[in-house]
């Protein structure tokens, strides 16, 4: 089985639009939306949800007022500023609570409960391109990395069961916890870069992250004609870092038009230059040695 993860570092460079467009180019694949924080792939895939599961992402401390003697041990030990004291009454600030349970274990009166917390939901769906595993993290919740890992685990399991050989994963922006959770054991990543000062800066950092975890990386340049100097700069950096440039897509409002129609770029306009570029990129990506290698997952 192989898994390609679409990343960018910088947000808004076109990860999800490209993931959706690629989906139509394979006869058999599993889709996985690993951007659980601000998931958008479902807006184009219009998934028919078959299964809904709660994501229990840890526990939350709750002080029982009838058992609390107001000794203040929890306030003293909490390193996350999550215990509030008001005239001898102690409460937990749920937004600050890290779920470490130190107050729970150290309370001399055992006055702090630690119920499991539902932090979101994950789904298994049918789409017109194949099955899809996706999720929604609750607002202001923690543990997005764990939910990303869970979504990818489920995508692998279900791909195996259905004898699907390719997983296409839409990744989150950034280089932190959810991104690291989205690339472990992936066959390769494809970085969607844009030819802007920010796009270059962020692509370099996500490239370094891939190198750090020894995941093969490729790059494609979206809106390449917006700034040809910056496009050349991306190509130079990619060569230096041994990152394959899989292709370039012209600046074209057709992506937005397709999105509004709930269609992929190729469904909306199969013949425009951007659509041709997307096809070429996919062909190049799939001939990369990392995408030929069978990985045990």
């Amino acid at each position: 089985m192989k898994e390609l993860v679409i990343l960018s570092g910088k947000g808004g460079t076109g990860k999800t639009s490209l993931t959706a467009a690629f989906a139509g180019l394979e006869s058999s694949l599993m889709l996985c939306d690993a951007d659980v924080d601000a998931a958008d792939l479902h807006l184009i895939m219009a998934p028919d949800v078959q299964e809904t599961h709660d994501f229990v992402g840890g526990n939350e401390a709750v002080i029982a007022p009838d058992r609390c003697t107001g000794c203040g041990t929890c306030l003293e030990l909490c390193r996350f500023d999550a215990i509030d004291e008001n005239q001898g009454e102690y409460t937990v600030d749920a937004l600050n609570c890290e779920g470490c349970g130190v107050c729970v274990d150290m309370c001399p009166e055992s006055a702090i409960d630690f119920p499991p917390k539902t932090c979101g939901q994950w789904f298994v769906s049918h789409t017109r391109f194949g099955p899809m595993v996706h999720a929604r993290l609750g607002i202001a919740e923690e543990n997005s990395g764990r939910l990303v890992a869970l979504v990818r685990e489920q995508a692998k399991k279900r791909a195996r069961d259905a004898h699907i050989d390719l997983i296409l994963t839409d990744g989150p922006p950034g280089i932190g916890c959810p991104v690291i959770a989205s690339i472990g054991q992936a066959s390769a990543i494809l970085i969607v870069a844009e030819p802007t000062v920010s796009g270059i800066h962020d692509m370099k950092r996500v490239g370094e992250l891939a190198a750090h975890f020894k995941i093969p990386a490729m790059v494609c340049i979206n809106k390449f004609d917006l700034n040809l100097d910056q496009t050349r700069a991306i190509e130079t950096i990619a060569r230096e870092k041994n990152i394959l440039v899989a292709g370039k897509i012209p600046f074209d409002p057709v992506f937005t038009k397709a999105m509004i129609q709930i269609q992929t770029l190729l469904e909306y306009d199969d013949t425009c230059p951007a659509a041709k570029a997307v096809r070429n990129i996919w062909e190049t990506v799939m001939t990369h040695p990392a995408m030929k290698l069978e990985r045990l997952m």
């Binding site: 947000g11 924080d37 601000a38 937004l95 993290l137 607002i139 202001a140 919740e141 923690e142 997005s144 989150p172 922006p173 950034g174 932190g176 959810p178």
Partner: peptide
């Protein structure tokens, strides 16, 4: 602030 709606955004906006 960073993008998203989880802990980094909360830390920035709080």
């Amino acid at each position: 602030a960073p993008p998203g709606t989880s802990c980094p955004v909360i830390a920035a906006m709080k």
